[in-house]
Structures are given as C-alpha cells and as structure tokens.
Design a protein around this nucleic acid. Sequence first.
DNA 1: GTCTATACCGCGATAGAC
DNA 2: GTCTATCGCGGTATAGAC
Lengths: 181, 181
Amino acid sequence: MIRSTQELLWERGYVGTSPKAIQLAAEAGQGSMYHHFSGKAELARAAIERSGAELRAAAEEQFAGSGTATERITNYLERDREVLKGCRMGRLTADPDVIADPVLRAPVAETFAWIRTRLAEIVAEGKESGEYPAGLDPDRTAATIAAVLQGGYVLARADGSDEPFELAVAGLVDLLEGVAS
Amino acid sequence: MIRSTQELLWERGYVGTSPKAIQLAAEAGQGSMYHHFSGKAELARAAIERSGAELRAAAEEQFAGSGTATERITNYLERDREVLKGCRMGRLTADPDVIADPVLRAPVAETFAWIRTRLAEIVAEGKESGEYPAGLDPDRTAATIAAVLQGGYVLARADGSDEPFELAVAGLVDLLEGVAS
DNA sequence: GTCTATACCGCGATAGAC
DNA sequence: GTCTATCGCGGTATAGAC
C-alpha cells in the first residue's frame, strides 16, 4: 500500500490522491487500510518518507562515485530520469496541504536539505582540489544545482518534452566547466 | 471571477480549486458563473492565459531595461517575488489535469517558451557585446536561468523559507559573472 | 443575466459483523 | 485483520424560475 501511495502521490499529488484510489491500486480493502493506518495523512507520511530515503540513496550513488567534482555533479545531473513525470519530492511542494502540515512537509524539507548539503560538500572538495576557484560559494552553488534539476522538471512538463530539462542541465554544466580551471 | 480564479489556481492548483470556492471569492452566484463560462475548465483557461500575459509583461520590464546582459538577467532574477507562494505558472505543471489537457497546458507552455526565448536573446546580445564568451550557448543558458527560478521556488517551499531561493539565484549570478569577461 | 433547487458522484472516515 | 454498510460533506453541473 505504501508503494501504491508513493506512485499515486507522484502522479496526482496529495490532494489528487484518494484513499479509494490507493486501495484499488494496492488491491487492498477499505477496512484493511484503516486498520493499518489512521487515514490518508499517515499513509502519505509513510510514503513520502520512503520516497525521500530512496531518492537520497539514488543520489548518493552518483555523489559517492569517483571522478572530479564536476564529473560527479554531471553524473548526478545526467542520470537517467523520467523527466516528464517530474520529481516525486519536488512535486509535493506544489501541494498546499503538504506544505501546510509540518508532519508531511518535514520529510520533503529534509530530503532537499540533505541533497543541498551533499552537493555543497562536493563543491567544497572541488575547491580544495583546486578544480574550482577559492571564491566559489559551496552553499550557493549547491542550491543552484538542485534548483536547475527541479526547475528543469517544471520546464519539461510545461513543454511536454524532455528538451528544456536537457538544455537547462547542459547549460549548468557549461557554466560549471566555465568557472573550473 | 477570472481574477479570483487566478488567485485560487495559484494557491490551490487546478485540482484543489472548486467552482464553489471561485464563486465565494468572487462574490458571484452559481448561475452567474455558469452563464458566462461553460465550466471550471474554461474559467481556468481564461485565468491561466491572463496570468501568462501578466507574467510576460512583468518579465519584460526587466528584460527591456538598460544595462549589460548580466545586469538585466540579475534584475530579473532578483526582482521582488513572493517566493513562498511559488510561481503561478510553474505550479500548474504539477497538476496532472492541466498537463493532460492541451487547452490548459498550451498557455503554460507558451509562457515558458517566451521567457526562454527572451532570455536567449539577451544572452546572445551579451555575446555580441563581448560580455560573454563566443562559446556560450544562448538556448542552454536561457533554460538554465529559467530553471533556477522555478527550482528556487520549489526548494524554498520545501524549506519553508526564502533562503534556498536566494542562494540558488546568487549562485547562478556568481556563475554568470564567472564566465563573463 | 442571475437566482434557487436539485442531482449525482466521489471523498474521507466510522461502525460493526465476521 | 478484513469485509460490507453507512454517513456527512463537498465537488461539478443542470434545470427552471424570475
């Protein structure tokens, strides 16, 4: 059921996902669902936390790889993604009910905080190795990288095509390589 | 009523906005609404188109200003924004019903296409003036700039604070200034 | 043009049987 | 633990009076 909820939250968001739809997707009965979870909110909480953990694990695969900072960041950016489906986490920030509920927003906030922190660490490593100029701000750069990804999804979904996402990522890589020595 | 719909679409999205809520906000009766509009979808269409026009007009204020390319882009990026409310247009890309309906998606697609085109023109001007290196790709760079804005909103809403948005914008400006001569 | 009444459906949850 | 029945509410739209 949690897995079905993750999928539905991704596709339809919190407001657009009904308990009944979850039960259908999970082939679970109504009584079963309300026995294991107090309601929609708790189920969503479990699903969001699981998605966050999966997302971090997937990102760490690229972050922890070998190569220069730019290479690892590029690997992360250019990883295979279902661009037109958007980001499971980023999508939830459009949901007022998620943003308004501290319990639901917390795992979203933590996931992005973690990603920005990891990216900042990698940028800092790039500075130490002399790859990036000493003046480059890791926290700013990390936020920019994370934003390009999230914004790339938005532009792609608006356009109905992967192209804007690819362009945005390529443009960012150009800029990163431009400031690298 | 269109104005009320714009506001509700911004706050709650398409799925989260009901005809009844629009009527309440606009202090209009039910019969009145269904007399002037065939239903929720047509009303949304009018609202989205109007928001698109307003967004383009607001952006053009910075785009058409004086100064170098980087200055005009920076003015655009650092314009006063209600960051935590998110982008009226970008928000709609999370709405499956909007993305699935060509009539509703079209004005969203056009708005972002216009913004990317204008940004690419400005980047191209920066190349001609010698501000940017000849190797810089205007389309890529434009997509990156637009993505940072949209992604900045996402990160800010996840964080519950303007900070990630400000960081992402500052990081992008750093990179742009870094590649500028 | 705008009003009220009505309809039908699905949401989100609860109750109590098994 | 899971099932079915039921509930109250609001979404979205139509009907027909004024």
